[in-house]
Write a protein that binds this DNA or RNA. Sequence first.
DNA 1: AAATATATTGAGAATCAATATCAATATATG
DNA 2: CATATATTGATATTGATTCTCAATATATTT
Lengths: 146, 146
Amino acid sequence: MKREKEIFEKFLSDQHLRDTRQREMILEAFLQREEHVSAEDLYGLLKKKGPAIGQATVYRVMKLLVEAGLVREVDFGDGVRRYEHCYNHPHHDHLVCRGCGKTVEVVDPVIEEMQKKVAESHDFELTDHEMYLYGFCADCRNKSAK
Amino acid sequence: MKREKEIFEKFLSDQHLRDTRQREMILEAFLQREEHVSAEDLYGLLKKKGPAIGQATVYRVMKLLVEAGLVREVDFGDGVRRYEHCYNHPHHDHLVCRGCGKTVEVVDPVIEEMQKKVAESHDFELTDHEMYLYGFCADCRNKSAK
DNA sequence: AAATATATTGAGAATCAATATCAATATATG
DNA sequence: CATATATTGATATTGATTCTCAATATATTT
Protein backbone atom coordinates (compact mmCIF):
# COMPACT_ATOMS: atom_id res chain seq x y z
CA MET A 1 0.00 0.00 0.00
CA LYS A 2 1.15 3.47 -0.72
CA ARG A 3 2.83 5.22 2.12
CA GLU A 4 0.44 8.16 1.79
CA LYS A 5 -2.55 5.93 2.38
CA GLU A 6 -1.01 4.56 5.53
CA ILE A 7 -0.32 8.06 6.78
CA PHE A 8 -3.87 9.13 6.08
CA GLU A 9 -5.30 6.10 7.81
CA LYS A 10 -3.16 6.75 10.82
CA PHE A 11 -4.21 10.38 10.81
CA LEU A 12 -7.85 9.40 10.68
CA SER A 13 -7.61 6.91 13.47
CA ASP A 14 -5.58 9.31 15.62
CA GLN A 15 -8.30 11.89 15.20
CA HIS A 16 -11.08 9.41 15.80
CA LEU A 17 -12.30 9.94 12.28
CA ARG A 18 -13.48 7.18 10.02
CA ASP A 19 -11.79 5.57 7.10
CA THR A 20 -14.44 5.69 4.39
CA ARG A 21 -14.67 4.73 0.76
CA GLN A 22 -15.00 8.37 -0.27
CA ARG A 23 -11.95 9.45 1.66
CA GLU A 24 -9.88 6.73 0.10
CA MET A 25 -11.10 7.46 -3.37
CA ILE A 26 -10.39 11.15 -3.12
CA LEU A 27 -6.87 10.56 -1.84
CA GLU A 28 -6.38 8.03 -4.60
CA ALA A 29 -7.53 10.46 -7.29
CA PHE A 30 -5.29 13.16 -5.92
CA LEU A 31 -2.24 10.91 -5.82
CA GLN A 32 -2.71 9.95 -9.44
CA ARG A 33 -2.37 13.53 -10.58
CA GLU A 34 1.05 15.03 -10.69
CA GLU A 35 0.04 18.65 -11.36
CA HIS A 36 -1.81 21.16 -9.26
CA VAL A 37 -5.48 20.33 -8.99
CA SER A 38 -8.50 22.09 -7.58
CA ALA A 39 -11.26 20.41 -5.60
CA GLU A 40 -13.47 20.95 -8.62
CA ASP A 41 -10.96 19.17 -10.85
CA LEU A 42 -10.97 16.16 -8.57
CA TYR A 43 -14.75 16.18 -8.37
CA GLY A 44 -14.88 16.08 -12.16
CA LEU A 45 -12.37 13.25 -12.37
CA LEU A 46 -14.18 11.16 -9.80
CA LYS A 47 -17.52 11.69 -11.46
CA LYS A 48 -16.22 10.10 -14.64
CA LYS A 49 -15.05 6.98 -12.91
CA GLY A 50 -17.93 5.71 -10.92
CA PRO A 51 -20.74 6.42 -8.55
CA ALA A 52 -20.47 10.12 -7.96
CA ILE A 53 -19.00 11.53 -4.81
CA GLY A 54 -20.61 14.75 -3.65
CA GLN A 55 -18.60 17.85 -4.28
CA ALA A 56 -19.00 19.03 -0.70
CA THR A 57 -17.25 15.82 0.31
CA VAL A 58 -14.36 16.54 -2.00
CA TYR A 59 -13.90 19.97 -0.47
CA ARG A 60 -14.11 18.51 3.01
CA VAL A 61 -11.63 15.75 2.38
CA MET A 62 -9.08 18.06 0.80
CA LYS A 63 -9.05 19.99 4.04
CA LEU A 64 -8.41 16.82 5.95
CA LEU A 65 -5.54 15.93 3.66
CA VAL A 66 -4.00 19.32 4.29
CA GLU A 67 -4.31 18.76 8.03
CA ALA A 68 -2.79 15.34 7.64
CA GLY A 69 0.24 16.99 6.06
CA LEU A 70 -0.12 15.16 2.77
CA VAL A 71 -1.31 18.11 0.73
CA ARG A 72 -0.35 21.72 0.46
CA GLU A 73 -2.56 24.55 -0.75
CA VAL A 74 -1.36 26.90 -3.43
CA ASP A 75 -2.96 30.08 -4.66
CA PHE A 76 -1.95 31.52 -8.00
CA GLY A 77 -4.27 34.45 -7.56
CA ASP A 78 -7.00 33.37 -9.96
CA GLY A 79 -9.57 32.73 -7.29
CA VAL A 80 -9.20 28.97 -7.27
CA ARG A 81 -7.57 27.04 -4.49
CA ARG A 82 -5.32 24.32 -5.82
CA TYR A 83 -3.52 21.50 -4.12
CA GLU A 84 -0.13 19.94 -4.56
CA HIS A 85 1.70 16.93 -3.20
CA CYS A 86 3.43 17.41 0.07
CA TYR A 87 4.67 13.96 0.97
CA ASN A 88 8.05 13.36 -0.58
CA HIS A 89 7.81 16.75 -2.22
CA PRO A 90 9.94 18.99 -0.06
CA HIS A 91 8.93 22.60 0.35
CA HIS A 92 9.31 24.79 -2.70
CA ASP A 93 7.95 27.97 -4.18
CA HIS A 94 6.65 28.74 -7.64
CA LEU A 95 7.66 30.55 -10.74
CA VAL A 96 4.46 31.28 -12.66
CA CYS A 97 4.24 32.31 -16.30
CA ARG A 98 1.80 35.16 -16.88
CA GLY A 99 1.51 34.04 -20.48
CA CYS A 100 0.68 30.36 -20.45
CA GLY A 101 0.21 29.70 -16.77
CA LYS A 102 3.02 27.19 -16.63
CA THR A 103 4.54 26.76 -13.19
CA VAL A 104 8.02 25.72 -12.15
CA GLU A 105 8.98 24.64 -8.68
CA VAL A 106 11.89 26.49 -7.20
CA VAL A 107 13.75 26.70 -3.93
CA ASP A 108 16.58 28.92 -2.95
CA PRO A 109 18.35 28.28 0.32
CA VAL A 110 19.52 31.86 0.60
CA ILE A 111 15.97 33.17 0.30
CA GLU A 112 14.71 30.66 2.84
CA GLU A 113 17.42 31.71 5.23
CA MET A 114 16.75 35.41 4.81
CA GLN A 115 13.03 34.92 5.31
CA LYS A 116 13.73 33.55 8.76
CA LYS A 117 15.96 36.47 9.58
CA VAL A 118 13.42 39.01 8.38
CA ALA A 119 10.74 37.39 10.53
CA GLU A 120 13.02 37.26 13.55
CA SER A 121 13.97 40.87 13.20
CA HIS A 122 10.30 41.75 13.67
CA ASP A 123 9.90 39.29 16.48
CA PHE A 124 7.66 37.01 14.47
CA GLU A 125 7.79 33.26 14.80
CA LEU A 126 7.65 32.05 11.23
CA THR A 127 5.36 29.12 10.56
CA ASP A 128 5.28 29.07 6.78
CA HIS A 129 5.35 31.27 3.74
CA GLU A 130 4.21 31.65 0.19
CA MET A 131 6.26 33.09 -2.60
CA TYR A 132 5.17 33.43 -6.19
CA LEU A 133 7.49 34.82 -8.82
CA TYR A 134 5.52 36.00 -11.83
CA GLY A 135 6.96 36.58 -15.26
CA PHE A 136 7.14 35.27 -18.80
CA CYS A 137 8.74 32.01 -19.77
CA ALA A 138 11.05 31.69 -22.76
CA ASP A 139 8.34 30.16 -24.96
CA CYS A 140 5.90 32.97 -24.34
CA ARG A 141 8.53 35.59 -24.94
CA ASN A 142 9.38 34.04 -28.29
CA LYS A 143 5.77 33.82 -29.36
CA SER A 144 4.99 37.42 -28.58
CA ALA A 145 8.19 38.56 -30.29
CA LYS A 146 6.97 37.19 -33.63
CA MET B 1 -3.62 69.08 -5.25
CA LYS B 2 -2.28 65.77 -4.27
CA ARG B 3 0.26 64.31 -6.59
CA GLU B 4 -1.77 61.10 -6.86
CA LYS B 5 -4.76 62.95 -8.19
CA GLU B 6 -2.66 64.57 -10.86
CA ILE B 7 -1.26 61.23 -11.86
CA PHE B 8 -4.71 59.71 -12.08
CA GLU B 9 -6.01 62.59 -14.15
CA LYS B 10 -3.11 62.29 -16.52
CA PHE B 11 -3.67 58.55 -16.74
CA LEU B 12 -7.34 59.08 -17.55
CA SER B 13 -6.71 61.64 -20.20
CA ASP B 14 -3.91 59.57 -21.75
CA GLN B 15 -6.31 56.66 -22.01
CA HIS B 16 -9.14 58.80 -23.33
CA LEU B 17 -11.12 58.06 -20.21
CA ARG B 18 -13.18 60.60 -18.35
CA ASP B 19 -12.50 62.30 -15.10
CA THR B 20 -15.71 61.81 -13.18
CA ARG B 21 -16.95 62.66 -9.73
CA GLN B 22 -17.09 58.97 -8.79
CA ARG B 23 -13.54 58.29 -9.88
CA GLU B 24 -12.27 61.22 -7.87
CA MET B 25 -14.23 60.25 -4.81
CA ILE B 26 -13.03 56.69 -4.85
CA LEU B 27 -9.41 57.73 -5.20
CA GLU B 28 -9.95 60.24 -2.41
CA ALA B 29 -11.43 57.64 -0.09
CA PHE B 30 -8.61 55.25 -0.83
CA LEU B 31 -5.94 57.86 -0.15
CA GLN B 32 -7.43 58.66 3.22
CA ARG B 33 -6.93 55.13 4.44
CA GLU B 34 -3.51 54.04 5.40
CA GLU B 35 -4.18 50.32 5.82
CA HIS B 36 -5.13 47.64 3.35
CA VAL B 37 -8.69 48.03 2.12
CA SER B 38 -11.00 45.94 0.00
CA ALA B 39 -13.36 47.32 -2.62
CA GLU B 40 -16.16 46.45 -0.27
CA ASP B 41 -14.54 48.46 2.53
CA LEU B 42 -14.36 51.50 0.31
CA TYR B 43 -17.91 51.03 -0.86
CA GLY B 44 -19.02 51.03 2.76
CA LEU B 45 -17.02 54.13 3.60
CA LEU B 46 -18.36 56.04 0.64
CA LYS B 47 -21.91 55.07 1.40
CA LYS B 48 -21.69 56.73 4.79
CA LYS B 49 -20.48 60.01 3.39
CA GLY B 50 -22.91 60.99 0.74
CA PRO B 51 -24.91 60.00 -2.27
CA ALA B 52 -24.04 56.38 -2.77
CA ILE B 53 -21.67 55.24 -5.43
CA GLY B 54 -22.52 51.87 -6.95
CA GLN B 55 -20.36 49.03 -5.79
CA ALA B 56 -19.69 47.91 -9.33
CA THR B 57 -18.15 51.31 -9.88
CA VAL B 58 -15.88 50.89 -6.91
CA TYR B 59 -14.63 47.58 -8.25
CA ARG B 60 -14.12 49.10 -11.68
CA VAL B 61 -12.25 52.13 -10.44
CA MET B 62 -9.92 50.09 -8.25
CA LYS B 63 -8.83 48.26 -11.36
CA LEU B 64 -8.12 51.55 -13.06
CA LEU B 65 -6.06 52.71 -10.12
CA VAL B 66 -4.01 49.56 -10.32
CA GLU B 67 -3.43 50.16 -14.02
CA ALA B 68 -2.50 53.74 -13.28
CA GLY B 69 0.20 52.42 -10.97
CA LEU B 70 -1.20 54.11 -7.88
CA VAL B 71 -2.48 50.99 -6.21
CA ARG B 72 -1.21 47.48 -5.67
CA GLU B 73 -3.28 44.38 -5.05
CA VAL B 74 -2.51 42.13 -2.12
CA ASP B 75 -3.98 38.77 -1.29
CA PHE B 76 -3.68 37.37 2.20
CA GLY B 77 -5.41 34.20 1.21
CA ASP B 78 -8.77 34.87 2.82
CA GLY B 79 -10.63 35.24 -0.44
CA VAL B 80 -10.75 39.01 -0.44
CA ARG B 81 -8.70 41.22 -2.72
CA ARG B 82 -7.24 44.14 -0.88
CA TYR B 83 -5.44 47.22 -2.07
CA GLU B 84 -2.49 49.17 -0.77
CA HIS B 85 -0.77 52.40 -1.66
CA CYS B 86 1.79 52.23 -4.37
CA TYR B 87 2.78 55.83 -4.96
CA ASN B 88 5.55 56.80 -2.59
CA HIS B 89 5.32 53.37 -1.05
CA PRO B 90 8.19 51.47 -2.59
CA HIS B 91 7.78 47.77 -3.21
CA HIS B 92 7.63 45.58 -0.15
CA ASP B 93 6.35 42.23 1.00
CA HIS B 94 4.34 41.25 4.05
CA LEU B 95 4.76 39.53 7.32
CA VAL B 96 1.31 38.36 8.39
CA CYS B 97 0.33 37.25 11.87
CA ARG B 98 -1.80 34.11 11.87
CA GLY B 99 -3.10 35.10 15.26
CA CYS B 100 -4.40 38.65 14.96
CA GLY B 101 -4.01 39.29 11.25
CA LYS B 102 -1.61 42.17 11.77
CA THR B 103 0.65 42.85 8.82
CA VAL B 104 4.11 44.33 8.71
CA GLU B 105 5.77 45.60 5.58
CA VAL B 106 9.19 44.15 4.92
CA VAL B 107 11.81 44.27 2.21
CA ASP B 108 15.06 42.46 2.01
CA PRO B 109 17.49 43.38 -0.74
CA VAL B 110 19.14 39.98 -0.66
CA ILE B 111 15.83 38.22 -1.23
CA GLU B 112 14.91 40.58 -4.03
CA GLU B 113 18.26 39.92 -5.66
CA MET B 114 17.99 36.16 -5.36
CA GLN B 115 14.48 36.17 -6.78
CA LYS B 116 15.83 37.69 -9.97
CA LYS B 117 18.56 35.09 -10.15
CA VAL B 118 16.16 32.24 -9.60
CA ALA B 119 13.92 33.51 -12.37
CA GLU B 120 16.84 33.98 -14.72
CA SER B 121 18.14 30.53 -14.09
CA HIS B 122 14.84 29.17 -15.46
CA ASP B 123 14.86 31.62 -18.32
CA PHE B 124 11.89 33.55 -16.97
CA GLU B 125 11.61 37.27 -17.33
CA LEU B 126 10.44 38.41 -13.93
CA THR B 127 7.67 41.00 -13.90
CA ASP B 128 6.64 40.98 -10.26
CA HIS B 129 6.25 38.76 -7.27
CA GLU B 130 4.33 38.17 -4.10
CA MET B 131 5.79 36.96 -0.87
CA TYR B 132 3.88 36.42 2.34
CA LEU B 133 5.63 35.30 5.49
CA TYR B 134 3.15 33.83 7.95
CA GLY B 135 3.74 33.39 11.63
CA PHE B 136 2.85 34.65 15.07
CA CYS B 137 3.72 38.08 16.37
CA ALA B 138 5.15 38.62 19.84
CA ASP B 139 1.80 39.77 21.25
CA CYS B 140 -0.04 36.68 20.08
CA ARG B 141 2.69 34.39 21.37
CA ASN B 142 2.46 35.99 24.80
CA LYS B 143 -1.29 35.72 24.91
CA SER B 144 -1.38 32.06 24.04
CA ALA B 145 1.40 31.32 26.52
CA LYS B 146 -0.76 32.49 29.39
C1' DA C 1 -26.32 -9.42 17.46
C1' DA C 2 -29.29 -5.73 18.68
C1' DA C 3 -29.38 -1.13 20.38
C1' DT C 4 -27.48 3.18 20.84
C1' DA C 5 -24.37 6.81 19.91
C1' DT C 6 -21.58 9.15 16.70
C1' DA C 7 -19.65 10.35 12.23
C1' DT C 8 -20.20 10.92 7.31
C1' DT C 9 -22.38 11.77 3.20
C1' DG C 10 -24.76 14.19 -0.59
C1' DA C 11 -28.34 17.12 -2.51
C1' DG C 12 -29.41 21.37 -2.56
C1' DA C 13 -29.50 25.94 -0.56
C1' DA C 14 -26.83 29.76 1.00
C1' DT C 15 -22.92 32.88 0.95
C1' DC C 16 -19.75 36.01 -0.70
C1' DA C 17 -16.69 38.37 -3.69
C1' DA C 18 -16.47 39.73 -8.11
C1' DT C 19 -18.24 40.45 -12.83
C1' DA C 20 -21.60 41.13 -16.56
C1' DT C 21 -25.82 43.31 -18.46
C1' DC C 22 -28.10 47.12 -19.97
C1' DA C 23 -30.94 51.11 -19.96
C1' DA C 24 -30.41 55.81 -18.25
C1' DT C 25 -27.22 59.53 -17.81
C1' DA C 26 -23.25 62.27 -18.43
C1' DT C 27 -19.49 63.99 -21.14
C1' DA C 28 -16.84 65.11 -25.12
C1' DT C 29 -16.31 66.39 -29.99
C1' DG C 30 -17.46 67.77 -34.70
C1' DC D 1 -26.46 71.97 -31.13
C1' DA D 2 -26.14 67.16 -32.53
C1' DT D 3 -23.97 62.99 -32.45
C1' DA D 4 -20.89 59.65 -30.74
C1' DT D 5 -18.83 57.66 -26.86
C1' DA D 6 -18.04 56.71 -22.02
C1' DT D 7 -19.84 56.02 -17.42
C1' DT D 8 -22.84 54.79 -14.02
C1' DG D 9 -25.75 52.02 -10.98
C1' DA D 10 -29.38 48.72 -10.16
C1' DT D 11 -29.77 44.24 -10.77
C1' DA D 12 -28.78 39.68 -12.26
C1' DT D 13 -25.21 36.32 -12.74
C1' DT D 14 -21.25 33.69 -12.00
C1' DG D 15 -18.13 30.63 -9.66
C1' DA D 16 -15.92 28.88 -5.78
C1' DT D 17 -16.76 27.43 -1.47
C1' DT D 18 -19.41 26.49 2.68
C1' DC D 19 -23.57 25.31 5.22
C1' DT D 20 -27.78 22.60 6.36
C1' DC D 21 -29.97 18.69 7.37
C1' DA D 22 -32.14 14.38 6.68
C1' DA D 23 -30.57 9.81 5.29
C1' DT D 24 -26.97 6.52 5.75
C1' DA D 25 -22.97 4.29 7.47
C1' DT D 26 -19.89 3.04 11.08
C1' DA D 27 -18.42 2.22 15.79
C1' DT D 28 -19.45 1.04 20.65
C1' DT D 29 -22.03 -0.73 24.29
C1' DT D 30 -25.09 -3.88 26.22
